[in-house]
Simulated scan of single mutants.
Amino acid sequence: MKEKKSVTRLDSTYMNQYDAHVERQGRKKKRLFRRLALFALVMLLVTSTLAVYHVQQRMVYAEKEAEYEQLQEEMATLEETESELREEVELLQQEEYVLEIARSNYFFSKEGEIIFKIPNQEPSY
């Protein structure tokens, strides 16, 4: 077993000053640790807030991108419909085409012509 050495402490001004110095150093370390902990907490909050904001913005961007794609497809179909309608307008400006539509849909006939309606079904025989 080890022998316990007992040394008596001298009560002097130097020792009192040294004890005060050691105590001040301990308090400085505690304050430093507290400041670092507070700084780390603030940085954690800021970082997590920025991360959440970034994720939200990515989600909004993905939604907008999907909406943009859908609107592009819709615009393409509308442009196709527009071109078909423009062609039909050009055709409707021709008198022959209008007469053909009138003859087929409304049984408009030429003078002296007789129109017979034939059903679109195939004969049953």
Rank of each mutant, 00 (worst) to 15 (best):
M1K: 05
K5P: 01
K5H: 14
K5Y: 13
K5L: 14
V7A: 01
V7Y: 14
R9M: 12
L10P: 03
S12Q: 05
S12G: 00
T13F: 05
T13K: 04
Y14N: 05
Y14G: 05
M15I: 09
Q17G: 00
Y18Q: 12
A20C: 00
V22E: 02
E23W: 01
R24A: 09
R24H: 11
R24E: 08
R24L: 06
Q25N: 04
Q25M: 00
G26Q: 08
R27G: 01
R27F: 05
R27L: 02
K28R: 10
K29T: 02
K29S: 08
K30V: 08
R31N: 02
F33K: 12
F33C: 06
R34D: 11
L36K: 06
F39L: 14
A40D: 08
A40L: 09
L44Y: 12
L44C: 12
L44M: 13
L45S: 13
V46Q: 04
V46M: 06
T47L: 07
S48E: 13
L50Q: 08
L50R: 03
A51D: 01
A51N: 03
V52G: 05
Y53K: 12
Y53N: 14
Y53S: 15
Y53V: 15
H54Q: 15
V55L: 14
Q56T: 07
Q57A: 13
M59I: 11
M59S: 12
V60A: 06
Y61L: 15
K64V: 03
K64C: 07
E65F: 11
E65Q: 15
E65P: 06
A66P: 00
L71F: 11
L71Q: 15
Q72M: 05
E73K: 05
E73W: 04
E73Y: 09
E73S: 07
M75H: 11
T77D: 08
L78H: 12
L78I: 10
E82T: 02
S83Q: 14
S83K: 14
E84Y: 14
R86G: 03
R86V: 14
R86Y: 14
E88A: 05
E88G: 03
E88H: 11
E88I: 11
V89A: 04
V89E: 15
L91K: 06
L91V: 05
L92E: 15
Q94F: 09
Q94S: 04
Y97A: 04
Y97K: 08
Y97D: 00
V98A: 06
V98Y: 02
L99F: 09
L99E: 09
L99T: 14
E100T: 07
E100K: 04
I101T: 12
I101S: 12
S104Q: 06
N105F: 11
Y106S: 04
F108H: 07
S109H: 12
K110W: 02
E113Q: 11
I115R: 02
F116D: 04
P119T: 14
P119R: 08
Q121R: 05
P123W: 07
P123M: 03
Y125A: 13
